[in-house]
Amino acid sequence: MSAIIEIKKLTKQYADGYRALDDISVQINEGEIISLLGPNGAGKTTLISIICGLTTLTNGSVTIAGFDVVRDYRKTRSLIGLVPQEMTLEPFETVLGTVNLSRGLFGKKQDRAHIENILRQLSLWDRRNTQIRELSGGMKRRVLIAKALSHEPKILFLDEPTAGVDVDMRRDTWTVIKDLKRRGVTIVLTTHYIEEAEEIADRVAVINGGKIILIEEKNELMKRLGTKQLCVELEKPMTDIPKSLIRFDIQIENSGSRLLYRYDASMKSTDVHSVLAALATENIVIKDLQTYESSLEDIFVDLVAKEKN
């Protein structure tokens, strides 16, 4: 796979002296979906802003398809679409008006058919003549995506595209992203939901304190880091784990009234199903069920601990 974005020894120090990015080097491959995973303040938005030309860099370089983002900004920027983190839209403009403006800004001739296509795909076509201030939050987010796609970019950046949106909107966004990938668009998205990275990314880069602390194929990462717990409250306490359940990694807690099953988040739900089926076969009555997911926080603690070793 060939790298479409090459980030070399990139450092960003803001005017107040704060070092938001510290000597970052990453390659992003053409056609992949890469997720930048990190807590608030990690430097995700700063990294994207430098690549898109919104923020100046202090040291290092970024090239896109071989062109430098500072020197050859016309070439690099016309390849990029950006969905910003904040909902920034002109309230009195219409949906169609603002999407056409985007296409023009990126140096493309108006193309009604293409714009109609995008708006239909994002369920915005019926609202094309509506002023943006009349739209709901989810709709506004779609407009931002439509604007970013208006000039047919080769690379799409989405900065926390699903923060604070409802489930439907999140699914729709994922569908759009997967569809773009199918058409060969490279996608970089930031998120602090591990679930999101899990759902759509090919690779995950974990960023914290301005440094990339890990970059890996998602499947590998999930296997290593994502553990879930199934917690089963029992009607009657038990002293020993029945034979049929021994092959699962199960512990007894709370003087026998609770079973804890640890499993891999990347595994199929059939594993949970097998545990529950086994419990039923043993005629063990379940009072309550809960699952816990290892949070990003846990993962960081894990990662940092491992880095120290």
């Binding site: 898109c52 030309g53 919104l54 900004y73 016309r74 070439k75 690099t76 920027r77 016309s78 990029i80 950006l82 910003p84 904040e86 920034t88 839209l89 002109e90 309230p91 403006l101 985007s102 800004l105 990126f106 140096g107 604007k147």
Partner: peptide
């Protein structure tokens, strides 16, 4: 106004001198 709204991000990230 675009600076105030934040919509200035778009011309700033566009291939415009």
């Amino acid at each position: 106004f675009p600076k105030y709204l934040g919509t200035i991000y778009e011309p700033l990230s566009a291939p415009i001198s």
